[in-house]
């Protein structure tokens, strides 16, 4: 049961990864791509890590740390990239 949920979360995460990464190849603005990347890289990766967490609960402290730092760093990087790319010009 737990195993199935864990696999389900990981598959969901990989689906998010694909869905969010494919728009990267298109010709949209940096900001639009940033929205879809936050779906894939933050939310998808979080789903995968939670899946791993269910698989090996004994390592929960480090995986929880990974989860928290993933959420914070990716979000902050999104903000920094958005800020820098819109301030410096050349934002198409």
């Amino acid at each position: 049961m737990i195993d199935n949920i864990s696999y389900g979360l990981m598959v969901l995460g990989v689906v998010f990864w694909f869905w969010g990464t494919v728009p990267l190849l298109g010709h949209r603005s940096v900001l639009y791509k940033l929205h879809s990347l936050s779906v894939s890289d933050t939310l998808g990766s979080m789903a995968i890590v939670v899946g791993l967490l269910l698989k090996i609960p004994r390592e929960w402290p480090l995986l929880l740390l990974a989860l928290i730092s993933l959420a914070i760093w990716n979000t902050v990087l999104g903000y920094v990239l958005a800020y820098c790319s819109s301030q410096g010009g050349g934002n198409d």
Binding site: V14, W17, F18, T21, V22, L24, L25, V30, K33, L34, L37, S40, D41, S45, L70, N74, L77, L81, S85, G90, N91, D92
Partner: peptide, 28 residues
Amino acid sequence: ALLLPIYEAWQDEDIWQKMLAFASIATK
């Protein structure tokens, strides 16, 4: 899924698009 941003980083000339691709590669 990792191949997509790698391809994008190679193919796109715009520096911000490259940065996005590298950020994606790093997390993945």
